[in-house]
Structures are given as C-alpha cells and as structure tokens.
Design a protein around this nucleic acid. Structure first.
Lengths: 347, 347
DNA sequence: TTGTAGGCGTTATCAC
DNA sequence: GTGATAACGCCTACAA
C-alpha cells in the first residue's frame, strides 16, 4: 500500500496525469463527470500531493528553520512554542536545529538546512558565535536570498529583522523596584560581557542606579564565568555567590540576569543565614517554572517568550510571502513585565 | 547571488550537467583535468546540492518527524535533545510537531509531515488520543510504509518499535525507598487512569506495598483531574492536595507521579504545618530542574529522557537504513534511577 | 572521457 | 475537454 501519486491515479482511471492534476484542483477545464470521478477516487484512497515534489516545483518548502542554543531551557522552549503556533496557523512546519552554544554546530546546522530544506531562519545565536564574532554563515545565508529573523541574542552587525526583549528596560524596572522596596546597596549577578543580553541587562541596572542617584560600586557587579552555567556546577555557583555576598555584607538587594543565578543567590543567602526577603531582596530575569515554584517564590522579569516567538514567526512568514527580501528591516521590541512574588516582599 | 545548481555550473564551464555531477562525486569516468576544474569552481562558489531535489530523487528526506504533546516541558525537551543528538550524528534533521495534547492537532500535524516531508516518526501520543482510543492516523501512517517509534506514552494497540521508561519499576523502587525510610502510610498522587504512564506508576506503587505486606488503602490514592495540570491552576492544585492530606492525617509518605504534583504536595504540607521530610517524606517522578532547585530539594525518579530520545532515534534510523519495515518490533525499556535528595532524608 | 535521456511528483503552458 | 511537454535539481544507465 504505497503512497498514491497522480501517475497511479491516471493509470488506474485511464486518463492523463495532467487531467488528474487539473481535476483535483477543481479546474473547469475538466468535465464535471471526470472531475467527480477522479475526486472520488482520490478521496477514497486518500490521495495527498507529495510535499517534496511541490517544494521542488515551487521553490518553497513551507518550513521554517529554527536555530537555538539549547532546547532544555524554558525560555527557548516558550519561544519555540510561539513560533510553532504561528507557523502552524499559516501552514508552515518547523525544523529545529540546536547549536549547543557552539559556533561550529551552529554553522553545520545552518548549512544543512540552507540547501533547500527551509525557506528562512529564526535564530538566536550561540554564545560562542557572539564571542568569536564570526558571522560569515549568517551573511552567506542572507546573500543567497534566504531571510533570517534573529531573536533575543541579536547581532547589530547583521542586517535582518529582529525581535528582542526589552532587556535594558526590564532590568531598569527591576532595579527601580528594588530601590523602591528600600534597598540601597544593590548588587548585580551577571554574565561575561560578550553575552549581549547580559550586557544590556547590566546597562539597565546601571541606568536605574544613576536615575536614583545611587553611586555605582564596581565591586557590586559580579560577572560569572560561562563555565559556571554547566549543570554540574550548581554547587560551585552558589559558593561563588556566597563568597561575593560575604565580601559585600552591605548588599541588601540582588538583581540577577537569569533564574538560576537568582536561585543560587537565594541559596547562598541561606548559607549565610540571611533571610529573604527581609535581609536580602532578590529579582531574577526570565520567568520560568523555577521562579514560580521556588521558596520563597521569586520575583522576576518576564520576557513573554511565546509572544516573542509569535512575532518572529510572523515577521519571517510575512517577508517570505511578500517575497520582499530587501531592507528596510524591522526590529520589534517585546516589553518585559515585572512579576512580583515573595522574594521582594516588604515588611 | 542565487543558489548555484549543476545546470549553472555546466553552462558556466561549458560541459554537460552529468559531467559536472560525476566530477563532483569524484568519478573516475571524468578526466582529472575537468574534475579538478569543476571541483575548484564548485568550491569557489560554494556549491551545495539541493536537499529537496535529492529527497525527491532518493525518496528519502533524511529528516525525522517528532510529535510531542508539549515543548514547554522538561522531560520532552530532554528527549528531543537526545533525538537531535543522534539524528545529527547520522546526518538527519528533526522536524518538530506539537499536539498540545489535542487529538486533532496530532492528526493534522502528522498528516502534514507524512506527505513526503519526513522518513519516519517518533511520537509520544497526546492525552486526548489515549482517551479517545482513535488510532487511525497511526495505522494509516504505518500502512503507507512509514515507520513509527513510540516513546513514553506508548500504545499496545500499535505494532511498532517502542522506547519506554520503566514506569512501574521506577514507582516500585520509589515506594520501597519510602518504606525503608520508615513510612508506613504512603499516599500516591496520580493522574486519571487513561494516562498510561500514570496508571503504570500507580501499579508500581501498589506492587511495592503488597511486597512489604502493607495493606492498600483506597483512600490513599488521589487521582487528579486533567484540568488541574493547567498552569493557572497551581494554587488550586495545592489546595486539593491539602484537603487530601488533612483528610488522611496518618499519611507520612507521598509518591507523586510527576514533579509538579510532588512540589504541590510539599507546598500543601507547608500550609498544614507539616515538616518535610520529618513529618512527611515526598518522592516525585521526572527529574527536572524543579526537583533540583526546590526547597527542600526533591527526591525523584529520573527517567533519563535524553537517553530515551537517543534510543528512539537510533531505532528509527536503523529501521530506515536497513529498509526493513516488517516485524519483529523492538521495545526498549530505559531504566529509571532514584535520585535521593532532601525530601526523603531520615532523622 | 563526455554527453544524452529518463525519472522522482507536481503544475503550468500549449496543442489537439 | 483532454493530453503532451517542459520544468524544478539531481542522479545514473546508457550512448557516443
């Protein structure tokens, strides 16, 4: 019971292939009789046109390539769900490629997909790519006429549509919230500078302090090495933060650029016998499961990942269907939202 | 700067298409001279064969279709990462389709992919599909010669390769652990019966009690309605569990069939002033982030999702490449592992 | 050593 | 109203 094709239908009903094709698209060129006969037959044996053949003919695959650094990651996962939603609504499929934060895997994955498998990319670049600043694969892709939409970790060097979280503003609002809650010595736990979003969030932190005339204390900025993000270094992470908190006993508020850092900060505070939120208030970035279920539950800056994914897919599909690959390009900023929970409660 | 094709190279170098094709596959039919010339040209302009054309010709797409109920879900996400790893190693791409636990979305998604876009499926069926027991889409797919590998939520009614977690045994080990830790009145928080894994885990729970001659108390089994799994019902969930715990004050151990239920049980216990693990020990199923970062950290049954995904991809690719679609089919059981943390510590 | 022709499944154009 | 033909990009058996 192999797949049915136009050819087989044609042979079976003793008509030509093109007659079948036309009949199935309900063309008025074909007599009502033959049309109905062919349609009935096709329906009975559940004929479906072969996507691959259509792709070859139309030079459109109706599938989007999504390249993300990691899939076991709540934020990216929400973005993908948003992409998938819009893609599906508009008849597109979604192929996922994982870079694992590696430059070469990102390149290989894109190469694999760029050769006809997809119509366009939605990508959040790997950390290593940001570090190396080697963007040849992105340039080549665009030069070949394949549109790219970047999200979250975007590159100013690349001319394409972008969807970003309002990182700086989200961080600013978070830090202002800490200040309003009475914190005066606010620390930040962030990533190394090459991670664009880490840098932006740090910028927002600094802006908020400046705005309220709180002097910036360099020592209050803790930049954590990339290696500490590995799963097996959970304990190590908390220890590093504990040391930092001990070295700066005045700190009464922490803004962390992600959930894990925030939770680790809470754990570290617990080691030191500090009560949260009484002695130390904490705000994280990325509103995932962890924040919701933590004890105390964690106040976070929600990024609306799903919405972000929807916008990215929308942007890409619009560009594809309008067949308009030239500038101007759009950058959509998705607003963040402060979700207040127990870790910043006032007494 | 459009994509380069054999045709264009042929015209450019004034040879025939087949010469180019042969030269690029380094065929000895072609003289060393022309071969080198063509290869150099192709390399210079970065020629890549078009995947779609290859797929059409070879009737192989080298891509796997993965259908899962949800992507914002740690377990499925780890499985996908395992699938992606093996797929990539063997030159396959991965298309993701989300069913959102809906029967019709599952059918639509599979239909969309089954028409040539992929070579085979890896699927964990939607809750609604298990409930409806309508498997026509799966049967049709298999009848058309497209192999399926089912994982986690598998159906005995379908003849295909399967990869499952050792649910019953994992549950049994967990409950035995509770008993050994001194619990005598052990409750279970589980799903409705139509969820296959919920049922299996409940079976393991009952087996463990029987094994240790602890009488089964029907009232100790709390079956939670599907609706309570929705995000917005977090608080509701904890309340239902709190009522249950209050109604059965003797309970000193809880086995929950997933992370959320386990965490909600801990929250409920906290409402009631019960100390964990002193008054109540808790074990969950699914070793995700939440368990690791909970306070107290949660003892769980780890399912090794990534390994499971790797096995599933391996099974599918093997079957595809051996071009052997007939029985016998294989069922691989991935062992679970009890990860002991604070929620079951003895005093 | 190189080139021609046919076919994978589809649709569109043009001829009958 | 129906059918033959070409084309999408590739590969390969078979000529030349």
């Amino acid at each position: 019971m192999q797949k049915l094709t136009l050819k087989k239908i044609a042979k079976e009903l003793d008509v030509s292939i093109s007659t079948v094709s036309k009949a199935l698209s309900d063309s008025h060129e074909i007599s009502k009789d033959t049309r109905q006969k062919i349609q009935a037959f096709a329906k009975l044996y559940n004929y479906r046109p072969n996507n691959i053949a259509l792709s070859l003919k139309n030079k459109k695959t109706k599938t989007l390539g999504v390249i993300i650094p990691e899939i076991v990651h709540h934020f990216f996962t929400t973005v993908v769900s948003g992409i998938e939603k819009v893609a599906n609504e508009r008849g597109y499929n979604v192929i996922i490629g994982l870079s694992n934060e590696s430059f070469s895997k990102e390149v290989i994955n894109m190469d694999m997909l760029a050769n006809g498998s997809i119509d366009g990319f939605i990508i959040s670049v790997a950390r290593e790519t940001q570090l190396k600043k080697d963007f040849h694969h992105l340039h080549e892709t665009i030069n070949q006429g394949m549109p790219i939409v970047m999200f979250d970790r975007v590159l100013p060097e690349i001319a394409c549509d972008k969807v970003v979280v309002d990182d700086a503003e989200g961080a600013r609002k978070a830090v202002l919230n800490l200040i309003d809650a009475g914190c005066r010595n606010i620390g930040i736990i962030t990533t190394e500078d090459h991670v664009s979003v880490g840098k932006l969030r740090t910028g927002g932190y600094e802006a908020a302090l400046k705005e309220r005339n709180i002097p910036l204390d360099e020592g209050f900025e803790l930049k954590l090495k990339d290696e500490l993000n590995e799963e097996e270094n959970i304990e190590e992470l908390a220890k590093v933060i504990a040391t930092y908190l001990k070295d700066h006993p005045a700190i009464d508020g922490i803004f962390a650029v992600n959930e894990i850092y925030a939770l680790s900060a809470m754990k570290a505070a617990r080691y030191l016998g500090k009560h949260i939120p009484k002695d130390l208030k904490v705000i994280g970035f990325t509103d995932g499961m962890l924040s919701k279920y933590a004890t105390p539950s964690l106040t976070t800056v929600s990024q609306h990942g799903k919405l972000l994914g929807e916008k990215a897919a929308f942007l890409l599909i619009e560009r594809l269907e309008k067949d308009h690959l030239e500038p101007p390009f759009e950058t959509i900023i998705v607003e963040t939202e402060l979700v207040e929970r127990e870790s910043t409660k006032q007494f």
